[in-house]
Simulated assay, not measured.
Amino acid sequence: MSHIRLLIVEDHALVRAGMKALLQKVEGIQVVADMGDGLEAVKFVQMEAPDLVLMDIAMPGLNGLDATSRIVKESSTTRVILLSMYANEEYLSQALQVGASGYLLKGAELAELELAIKTVSRGETYLTPAVAKYAVEAYRNKSGAPSSPLTRLSGRQREILQLIAEGQTTKDIAYRLNLSVKTVETHRSQLMERLEIHDVPGLVRFAMRVGLIQPDF
């Protein structure tokens, strides 16, 4: 039997090491790499094309949602399961819209993690029971995936929103994304208009609420 070639992407080193240690004991799964950066994950998939990526949603720089979007668009064979601490409609909506094949809570037992991986590797979708109810409700309402304020933003605007919320200056963002300062300022103005939020503290609170960044405790 061929192994499921799995990439783990999680920015907390201890959590990542724990997942790797657990999954290496599961028959039929081969952990080919692990890393803590969404952009590096995109590059790895481009070069190595693993069967499946286990991806944390909330990561600095390039978050799991935008990394998933890039991976799904660029690879027809690699599927993604998103990991989250939260069982809410907002996160599920975004996970489905960027093309994730699975949504799993970080508190899941190993048995559920194994089930999710093997379900998705067969070409099916796995939603942890705590969020599956939202998908059912959306289907019953014939409204498709649950709606989210983030759907008002383009992928680039979402990236810039995250970097603003992480405290980076316009100049820093322009350098990181290889854009002009004027282009970043335009995106910033447009995303504020679309979200109807007109100050940076408001953007930070919004980014925390939808899971683009995590609050510091």
Rank of each mutant, 00 (worst) to 15 (best):
S101L: 11
S101G: 07
G102A: 07
Y103N: 04
L105Y: 03
L105I: 06
K106F: 08
G107P: 01
G107T: 08
A108P: 09
A108E: 01
E109K: 15
E109Y: 05
L110C: 03
A111S: 14
L113A: 00
E114D: 11
L115Y: 10
L115K: 14
A116H: 03
K118Q: 13
R122N: 12
R122V: 06
G123W: 07
T125M: 10
L127D: 09
L127A: 01
L127R: 01
A130S: 12
V131F: 02
A132Q: 11
K133V: 15
K133G: 02
A135S: 12
V136R: 08
V136G: 10
A138M: 08
A138S: 14
Y139L: 14
R140M: 15
N141E: 11
N141A: 14
N141K: 11
S143G: 15
S143T: 13
S143W: 00
G144E: 02
G144W: 04
A145P: 14
P146R: 07
S148Q: 04
S148W: 06
L150F: 06
T151Y: 12
T151P: 05
T151G: 09
R152C: 04
G155Y: 10
G155S: 12
R156W: 05
Q157E: 15
Q157W: 05
Q157T: 06
Q157C: 10
E159I: 00
E159R: 10
E159H: 07
E159G: 04
L163H: 00
I164S: 09
I164H: 08
E166P: 05
T169W: 02
T169M: 03
T169Q: 08
T169Y: 09
T169H: 06
K171F: 05
K171D: 13
K171V: 15
D172L: 02
D172K: 11
I173G: 01
A174K: 05
A174E: 09
Y175G: 11
Y175V: 14
R176M: 04
L177S: 07
L179W: 00
S180R: 12
V181W: 05
K182E: 13
T183N: 08
E185W: 04
T186P: 09
T186N: 10
R188T: 14
R188Y: 11
S189Y: 15
S189K: 15
Q190R: 14
Q190S: 15
R194W: 04
R194K: 15
L195Y: 04
E196W: 00
I197F: 00
D199W: 04
D199P: 07
V200S: 03
L203R: 10
L203C: 06
L203P: 02
L203K: 04
L203V: 09
V204M: 10
R205C: 05
R205F: 00
F206M: 04
F206Y: 08
A207C: 02
A207S: 13
V210Q: 08
V210P: 01
L212V: 07
L212F: 10
I213K: 04
P215C: 10
P215Q: 12
